[in-house]
Write a protein that binds this DNA or RNA. Sequence first.
RNA 1: GCGCCAGUAGCUCAGCUGGAUAGAGCAACGGCCUUCUAAGCCGUAGGUCAUAGGUUCGAGUCCUAUCUGGCGCGCCA
Length: 549
Amino acid sequence: MAVESLQRELGRAVRAIGADPDTRVGLERARDPEHGDWASNVALTLARPLRRKPREIAEEIVARLDTDAAGVRSVEVAGPGFINFRLAPEALIGGLAEIVDADLAFGRSEDGQGEPVMVEFVSANPTGPLHIGHGRQAALGDAIAELLAWTGWKVSREFYYNDAGEQINRLARSVAARRAQLDSPSAPFPEDGYHGDYVSEIASRFPGGPAASEELRAFAVSELRAEQDRDLSEFRVRFDRYYLESSLYTDGRVQDTIRRLREAGRVYEQGGALWLRTTAFGDDKDRVMVRSNGEPTYFLADVAYHLAKWERGFRRAINVQGSDHHGTTARVRAGLQALGLPRGYPEYVLHQMVTVLRGGQEVKFSKRAGDYVTLRELFTEVGVDVARYFFLMRRAEAQLVFDLDLALDQSDKNPVYKIQYAHARMHAIFRRAGLPMSDVAAGTVALLRQPAEVELVKVLRRLPETLAEAAARHAPHLLCKYLEEAAAAVNAWYHTGNRDESLRVLGVEQDLSRARLLLARAAAIVLRNGLSVLGITAPERMEHAETLT
RNA sequence: GCGCCAGUAGCUCAGCUGGAUAGAGCAACGGCCUUCUAAGCCGUAGGUCAUAGGUUCGAGUCCUAUCUGGCGCGCCA
């Protein structure tokens, strides 16, 4: 690739002027086209160690560059001492064949080298329908997992079921109370019970009698798990494994974790409880592992669970959780460090809350769940593609405002449709031409000289680096931004044909038409691959409301 | 009180390890339809980057303090 040879050549010139051989030679895409294609600030960073003026250093580096070797058309020193490079047009256009040859694999890389990584997400308690916060987490976790898969990691998606705690007892009491009310309506309902209509629904579906409390509890949990599974499945999120908290107790992992922490000498007794000295690893207070009544804490199970991840061979584990859990991250990591695991294990992606807006007003309630909006209600109204995209288009750490009015808009104002339309337009060209896309695998790309064409090629080639950065930073929103930019470039190119027929793909001289078809195919590949990473469909033809009715 | 996240255009938000005049979408304003689908396109306007200091050749980005919003600080999960 031209950029890598440019980087090497630049490094050679930097050493040639007597700079430290370890100097980091920055080379990045110029933000402003005025500054060429690539720019280096190396002369500025060398100014201090060399005690010389940046521009002088830049001039000297440029004088020693062999630009022919790097496919560079021109070099200039600009501003305070930047070195700007313009690539030869052939070097830019040459990337088109790469996209089409790779096709479904375009954008994939091998950074992960097939190493295993676990992404744990959703992990909702089986006590009610999934809400929009879970939706954000489902979309985020799935996209992060897919980004890692695209960058060469062997990814496992896991859901941790907190099926062992007090909240399950609460659920059981709530359903039992509703069941009793079927026989005598004045029967009491627990103060801390779950109030949503779904509790009554489960109670009325329960086939057993009023006294069967164990069966009722199991029934309620399995009903809610089944409902969550249906929601997630329709939201197009699948897991490789569901890990039950209860299994940590039955298979001895919890007891084993206590034993090992004791052996590590990080444990002490106080007030009849067993404590772990997490403050030794940066926590702000020590934590109870076993209560004075002999019951282990949730925290202990959490440590046991993450130890199990490590011992199952996952040297990387990423937990996607709501930011309301941020208090637990320090103590879980501390517990794991006490057992000899590395400091940053696991990695956390903590996302902020979601609010739903309709007509500028916040929507808070749901018919079934009572006090929150469910994921199902949301994706039923706006569609899975739109819901997933809206959950992903903001950084996880920022609060998310889900604008229903924009989500329901089916024009290009809605970023999801904008990208999908751009993709469908490329297919429309091929339909009009009567050609399958796969028939166009080569062309005289040197004929692509129009500004909109060159610009589009430049954008399309950035997919691999965008995926790599989004994966490294656990940040799917970077891919959303990129796809919107790519769609804008596709639309801009496509519409140049509106004003000037000589710029169209079809109806122009054959070699030129062929080259433009190749560009259209490359555009479709980039948009489709990018959307697939986000779990969003790339339709070849868009149907819209007016024509459906 | 302590901790985590955030504060950038009227609104919703980008801004990569500090780098060249701060970007996008929506809303606003002005143009463009016998189209490879105008469900659109082109253009214009709009910002003391919460505030005050500091580090630096250079700060939206790093440090300190303050203000505002969200979340968390249990022998709950």
